[in-house]
Amino acid sequence: MKDLLEDIDRWRAAGLRIAVARVVDIEGSGPRDPGAAMVVNEHGEVAGSVSGGCVEGAVVSEALAILAGEEASRVVSFGYSDDEAFAVGLTCGGTIRLFIEPLDW
């Protein structure tokens, strides 16, 4: 999140609502370590990344649903090896879990 402070500042100055997604856990081979983060504003603009580009699109949809109040802050999993995984997976075969929440704290 450290690399995203400028984007967050800019969006906050513009009065935009922001969701933050952070990698909290990886199983097997994962491209980014816990703490890797991306932020999404209410217009769907993105900064940062949480994988090698495999799951970012799905994260944006989740983040927008959370900002719209359709979903609560929660952990989402991506990967082929997890029963609850989304249809999108990681090409490396691992599983990553992300926590997505509004940046309202």
Partner: peptide, 9 residues
């Protein structure tokens, strides 16, 4: 950050 269980967020 609480990510699951009582008091998420």
């Amino acid at each position: 950050t609480t990510i699951a269980g009582p008091g998420v967020g």
